[in-house]
Each structure stands twice: as structure tokens, then as C-alpha cells.
Simulated assay, not measured.
Amino acid sequence: MPEVESTDALAGVPDAFQRLWTPHRMVYIQGDLKPTHPGECPFCSAPRREDADGLVVARGTYAYVVMNLFPYSPGHLLVCPYRHLSDYPDLTPEETVEIAQLTQRAMRVIRRVSGAQGFNIGMNMGEVAGAGIAMHLHQHIVPRWTGDMNFLPIVARTRALPQLLGDARDLLAAAWEE
């Protein structure tokens, strides 16, 4: 009978498969970072940090632009009001206008920085509608390119992202100022 290796010895053993390990995503998948009360809201705490530390790309008077910590594609941004609220009709007219203006500017900047060919833009209102953090309104700006999605999200619940969040934030923040 052939000798059987322990499973510890199998880690890193070359075989025919390429593996893209994304253990950091387990926090998102398991919901470990979901806030349970307003004091834990990441969209309230991000603008209180230094821009690079909070992944903030740009700041307005009523809203700000931040990198998505769990992006669907490189350059995935969120536009968030500073005010902690969860329902779109609760925005003031000034907040509504600024969120729209920041969204337009973000699209221009992303196109300039990465040549995005299209965008998915939208809000998921409430957990039942798919909001990962339903307690604080936020609008997604997801850049898209021809052929950018593959089988990984479907088969492996994994997204291959070729750019680190901090690097993307630095490029977008610099281009925002141009």
C-alpha cells in the first residue's frame, strides 16, 4: 500500500491547478464586519480618518467618495452622504444634488484613470434588496470593461482584482484634483 501524505504536506505542492487565494473575503462573506448599530457604521467612520487610511478619494460638503472595501471591479467607488441615513427619500435636496455631481465626476475620473468602457451605478435599499450595509445609504459606481467578468465569481465566489485598494485610491484621488 502506498504511503499517504498528511494534508499538511499538500499545501503548496505543485499540481495542474492555479489557485487564487482570497481569505480576506471571508470577513465579507460571513458578515463579520456588518455593523449592528450606528456607532459601528464604516460610512460614518471613514470620513473621520485621514483620506488614505479611510480610502476616501474625494470630499464634498454633504457627501464623499470612498473605495469599496470589497470591490466588484478595480476602481469600484461608493458615494456616501456624511449624514447617517438609510433611505433615499430622506436626503435633503442639497445632498441629492451633490451625490449626483460626485457620481458624474467619479465617472469622468475613472474613465481618465482606467479607460472604463461602461459603468453599473446604483443603490441597494435595504438588506432584502442586497444592501451589504443597509443602515447607511451609499451609491455604487462600478467601472466595467469588455470581457472584465469571468467564471470566478460564479464557480469560486472569487473576484480577481489586479490592483490594490490603496493604489487605486491614490490614482483616483490624484486624478480627482486635476
Rank of each mutant, 00 (worst) to 15 (best):
P14I: 01
L171K: 11
G60P: 09
L161T: 11
A16M: 14
G31C: 02
T103I: 00
H140C: 11
Q117S: 07
L91T: 04
Y82W: 13
T36M: 05
Q18E: 15
R157E: 14
A134L: 02
G12V: 12
G122Y: 01
L69K: 13
L102V: 10
N124H: 14
P47D: 01
D15L: 02
E95S: 11
R25F: 13
P93K: 04
Y62R: 15
Q117V: 10
A46W: 04
G126Y: 13
R112E: 09
V4A: 09
L165G: 09
D51K: 07
A134N: 04
C44K: 04
L165H: 02
M123L: 14
M123N: 07
F43W: 06
A160F: 15
L161A: 11
V155H: 12
W176Q: 15
M107P: 10
L91C: 08
R49I: 01
H24G: 10
I110Y: 03
R19N: 05
W21N: 09
H138R: 06
T36D: 03
E5M: 08
P2D: 14
C80P: 08
P143C: 12
A156S: 14
H138G: 08
D90S: 10
Q163I: 15
P47T: 03
R59I: 15
R144V: 11
R112P: 03
E40C: 03
V97S: 10
G60C: 07
A116Q: 10
P81L: 09
H140P: 13
I141A: 10
E177K: 10
A52T: 06
L165W: 04
V97L: 05
V57K: 05
D87L: 04
C44V: 06
L102P: 06
L20Q: 13
D148R: 05
I141S: 11
R59T: 14
P74G: 14
L152P: 01
L172H: 01
G122W: 00
P143Q: 09
S6I: 05
I99P: 01
G115C: 03
G132Q: 05
D8A: 15
M107K: 14
G132I: 00
S45A: 04
P89F: 02
H24A: 14
G75T: 00
R108N: 11
T146L: 12
G126V: 07
V66W: 07
R159D: 08
F119G: 02
V113T: 10
Y82A: 12
P89C: 02
V97R: 10
R157D: 14
E178A: 12
G147L: 01
L78N: 06
L102A: 08
D53M: 00
I29T: 06
L91H: 01
V128N: 07
I110M: 10
R112L: 08
T92C: 00
L102I: 12
A173L: 05
